[in-house]
Design a protein around this nucleic acid. Structure first.
Lengths: 130, 130
DNA sequence: TTTGACCTTCCCCTTAAGGGAAGGTTTAAA
DNA sequence: TTTAAACCTTCCCTTAAGGGGAAGGTCAAA
């Protein structure tokens, strides 16, 4: 299978497939005589795993580890769970940050007329005179 | 005032002050004979505004516009509110994405023993066999 | 005059994804 | 048989916001 076909089947575009190879996320593809990368069904499977992990927000570093654990049929599930829990905590931290921003912003926006007049609580809020 | 002093007063480090100048976020600083950037109290004020806007998650593009509106004493507050509302919507979108990830991840993690055994619902969840 | 704390510019790195150029290959149709 | 489209290759550039560190110039105090 050429890269275009595996891209279609895995829903990961060719550009990213080459990138993942370069990053060592997936193993180096074999090549045809002309130098074209050659893939198997299994490669599609791996790429789908990567895609799914990305959709859940895992970093490339995490994904590299997850794939290695995925391949190792005797891994302790604790290692997988550790990665996942760490990621969950990071996402929760991000969420809290966003919620805090939203709290402030909504409060400011609520008090802003949003019309032709120049007085603006939003700008006043940004202009903190510590 | 040299850049170090203004950095201290605005709590924006020198590196970023130069960067903001380069990006046109703040105006080009005057120079001393030796080529050192020179700042006034007002520059500190502007940098604090930038910092505050960054803390609320505004992009540099937004901040550029916000500063220009801030300076324009006859701006219509609607323009400010538009920028803020757009940003609020983006943050809400991000939050929804993170919440969706967290929902899935927590569910998977909950069912993972996280011990020495190899069976792992987290890996199974990533390994979707569409 | 030396030393240390400043300042300057310049280039590199991070993250994840992708645009686009220049050029080689394959396939199918005219 | 030639040609055109659709692939493929590598290489470099861009995004966003922040920073590290080098090499070298400046300033102030001891």
């Amino acid at each position: 299978m050429n890269i275009g076909e595996v891209a279609k089947q895995s829903d990961v575009n060719s550009k990213m497939i080459r990138r993942y190879e370069e990053l060592g996320i997936i193993s180096k593809a074999g090549r045809s005589l002309a130098g074209y990368r050659q893939y198997s069904e299994n490669d599609v499977h791996v790429l789908r795993f990567v895609k799914r992990a990305r959709e859940l927000g895992f970093s490339m570093k995490d994904i590299k580890q997850l794939i290695s654990l995925w391949r190792n049929k005797s891994r302790p599930s604790s290692q997988v769970k550790n990665i996942a829990m760490k990621h969950i905590m990071e996402l929760e931290k991000k969420m809290a940050e966003i919620q805090s921003m939203l709290g402030t912003l909504k409060n400011l926006a609520e008090h802003c007329h949003g019309d032709q007049r120049p007085d603006c609580p939003i700008l006043d809020g940004l202009d903190c005179h510590k």
